[in-house]
Amino acid sequence: MDSPLWRDGFTLFLSIVVQAMPFLLLGVFLSGLMAVFVEGSQLARFLPKGKIGSAVAGGALGFFFPVCECGNLPVARQLVIKGIPPHVAVAFLLAAPVFNPVVIFSTWIAFRNMPELVAYRVLFSFGIAVAIGLLFSVQKDLEPLLQPAVWRELQRNRCQEAALKSTSRSPLLQGGTFWIGSRGPAPSGGSLATLQRAEEMYRAALAAAPALSWRQKGLLLLQTWAREIRELGSVLILGSAVAAFVQTVIPRSFVLDYGQDALVSILIMMALAGIISICSTVDAFFALSFAATFTPGSLLAFMVFGPMVDLKAIGLMLTLFRPRAIFYLVLLTFQFTLVGALAINYYCS
């Protein structure tokens, strides 16, 4: 129980959790505010109508929500629940860990002597995120993509917004008759009065939800934060434990033996990025320690692939997407990153 391997694994586990937790809390903080104070229709108004424009806008959102892969999932999940198309959330989910001012600055600090890697990291991450978002936009039926709980919340929000929109101009209360503009005869006075009373009661019930007091909104905000922390925090701890366990098993000597091979070095660094699950705000400094022994393309692959789909991020994605959707997301990210990193290796050779 007191072996060096166990101590190293526990130390790695704590380091991953300590690095990730502040950014997870930041993401939960932002998503809670969005859940209580922002309507889906308000968010949708700021998005371009076309698929390409909306995917680009989704990727660019990361610049205004400077959170790493630990904190962007709560925000992305709330975007989906609020009715934003999932392909926009996918673009945000993949781009935000790198396409934000905090990570760009930390990468530049680490690779000041290799500024091209900083530019490649930002451009590749953004381009891959938008491309995968566009591929996900082809899916018309969203239910197979989303977890059942997220799908139910999305449907409930849609129904509430549709009901509020329809009752704001309800024909029951226009001119005293439901049959304005219709072809049939108007119902008798008694049935019309009943319908009017039912409509008024329904509108009053719907109007009560947005008219929460500040105290009620505060309680709802606390409840939302508590639920998000409980759900996402448990997944984060599990993913961190798996990442720490696997990292202690793989010998470092095996990694260093293949650092100069154009293809194998990329595969090793991508696997390493997925396993060790370092937060994107500090992973550039970890990659810098391999700069003397690994190819430029492999360093780039580490800094592009890891923030998108490491073990910790995959665990968190399971609270939003079904496993099949995550499989395609990981596969596409792997392919795009591999092709881009190979191009950099052959360009720099």
Results as ranks from 00 to 15, higher is better:
D2W: 14
S3M: 05
F10R: 08
S15F: 09
S15W: 01
S15D: 07
Q19S: 12
A20C: 10
P22S: 09
P22W: 09
F23N: 03
F23W: 14
F29N: 02
A35W: 01
F37H: 14
G40K: 07
Q42F: 05
Q42H: 07
R45A: 15
K49T: 14
I52Y: 09
S54Q: 02
A55D: 12
G58T: 05
G58C: 13
G59V: 05
G62L: 11
F63M: 06
F64V: 13
P66V: 04
C68A: 10
G71P: 05
N72R: 07
A76H: 10
Q78R: 15
L79D: 01
G83W: 12
I84T: 07
P86H: 06
V88F: 12
A89Y: 02
V90M: 10
A91W: 10
L94R: 03
A96C: 14
F99I: 13
V103K: 02
F105A: 15
W108F: 15
A110L: 11
R112M: 08
P115V: 05
V122W: 10
L123Q: 00
I128L: 06
A129C: 03
G133C: 04
L134T: 04
F136E: 01
L142N: 10
Q147L: 01
A149H: 13
A149L: 04
R152P: 01
E153Q: 14
L154V: 04
R156W: 05
N157T: 09
N157D: 04
Q160H: 11
E161A: 09
A162H: 01
S166H: 06
S168H: 11
S170Y: 08
L173P: 03
G176S: 12
F178I: 09
S182L: 15
T194D: 12
T194A: 14
E200Q: 13
E200Y: 02
A204Q: 11
A205R: 11
L206R: 06
A208Q: 13
A208R: 15
L212D: 06
K217N: 03
L220T: 08
L221K: 05
T224N: 13
W225N: 05
E228K: 12
V235Y: 14
L236Q: 06
V242M: 11
T248S: 10
P251F: 04
R252Q: 15
R252N: 00
F254L: 15
V255R: 13
Q260I: 01
D261Q: 10
D261H: 15
S265G: 14
L272T: 03
I276C: 12
I276W: 09
C279E: 03
T281V: 11
V282Q: 06
D283A: 04
A284Q: 04
F286K: 12
A287P: 02
L288N: 00
F294K: 01
T295A: 01
T295K: 01
G297D: 08
S298V: 09
L299K: 08
L299S: 07
A301I: 00
M308D: 02
L311Q: 01
K312Y: 13
A313E: 09
A313T: 13
I314D: 00
L316N: 07
T319N: 15
L320E: 00
L320I: 10
F321G: 00
P323G: 06
F327V: 10
L329I: 02
V330F: 06
L332I: 03
L338Y: 07
V339M: 11
Y347F: 15
S349V: 12
S349A: 11
